[in-house]
């Protein structure tokens, strides 16, 4: 091996080491803000056309589209400015998270109002609004929220202006307020592995379920359609186990997360191919994206994997 190459490799491992340390210590606000922006764009596109399928028959259906644009902008802003990350990004992410909850309510209600309502759960989940989609949409908001509490990559010392949400803590009963402050503190220091693991587990379950019924709709025509359905519960199980057990977090979690992410990539490829193979293919591309296999859905599944991966790199809270 030439000197140069080994030098490069050393530099590579060095970089990786740096990244890992940044994450361990909660110093990855910039990158997470950027990631927030990117996921927000993807989920914004998805919700834009999904709601177009639903014809924007309520004005509230515009909110996730608008918010995901705002969140993307806020994410980019957070990448460039610490101030923005702590203010705009935090608030936009928070509102988006609330909106996801509101969306969940409307989707549940939408299914209820379809003929047969919840008495025909499978049919109406398939043909009505996708129940869990709004919660999955909340993933990017969650990332944004976390990002807003982190330290910047370049920061060396613990932050001087911590506890900026102190007004909120003042509103809460003192015990809860203290809990909140210490949670914030932990996040800032990258000690929130359990939390991310829980979110990863939940999001794996939800997107696994979405994959199940939308592939069920297609009669599981391809064997590969079972893969997200099979991987999701494992990812969820490992994630939940990781909250209890440090070893799981360090070993199984990164592995299964990587598998999920890889599966998502494969899924993305097949979905894109499926879109092109529809009648009219490229000529009616926009229509086929709308009604073909949802091309971004696998990426949301991948997001669960990504969260798992993130969790495995973080530190645990010390209580």
């Amino acid at each position: 091996m030439s000197k140069e190459a080994s030098g490069l490799e050393a530099a590579g491992t060095h970089d990786l080491e740096v990244v890992r340390n940044h994450i361990r210590e909660g110093r990855f606000q910039r990158s997470l803000s950027l990631l927030t922006a990117v996921t927000s764009i993807v989920s914004g596109l998805e919700v834009a056309y999904e709601h177009y399928r639903g014809s924007y028959s309520r004005r509230v259906m515009y909110t996730p589209v608008i918010l995901s644009v705002l969140l993307a902008v806020a994410g980019f802003a957070g990448f460039f400015s610490k101030r923005a990350a702590r203010t705009v990004l935090r608030w936009v992410a928070f509102v988006t998270l609330v909106d996801a909850g509101v969306g969940f309510y409307f989707h549940v209600r939408g299914i209820y109002r379809k003929p047969g309502g919840w008495r025909l759960p499978m049919t109406n989940m398939i043909m009505g609004p996708p129940v869990f989609a709004p919660l999955l949409f909340g993933t990017s908001a969650y990332l944004g929220l976390i990002a807003s509490y982190l330290q910047r990559e370049e920061s060396l010392h613990a932050d001087p202006d911590a506890n900026e949400d102190s007004w909120l803590t003042r509103l809460l009963p003192s015990a809860a307020g203290r809990e909140l402050i210490s949670e914030e503190q932990d996040i800032r220091e990258g000690k929130f592995q359990q939390q991310v693991a829980i979110v990863a587990g939940v999001s794996a379950l939800l997107s696994g379920f979405e994959a199940y019924y939308s592939h069920y709709k297609n009669n599981f025509r391809y064997k590969a359609q079972w893969s997200p359905v099979a991987i999701a519960p494992i990812l969820a199980g490992v994630s939940f186990a990781s909250t209890k057990n440090r070893r799981w977090a360090a070993t199984a979690l990164p592995v299964i997360s990587a598998v999920a992410a890889a599966d998502a990539a494969v899924g993305f490829y097949y979905h894109a191919r499926g879109v092109l193979r529809r009648p009219g293919g490229r000529k009616h591309l926009l229509y086929n994206i709308m009604y073909g296999p949802p091309i971004f859905a696998p990426l949301l599944f991948g997001a669960a994997g990504m969260l798992g991966g993130l969790a495995s790199l973080l530190r645990r809270r010390n209580r």
Binding site: P115, G116, L120, M127, K217, N218, N219
Partner: peptide
Amino acid sequence: AYPRAYTRLERGEPEP
């Protein structure tokens, strides 16, 4: 097919 709908509209696939 009311209230229960059809879900598999394409390729002549059978409902469950």
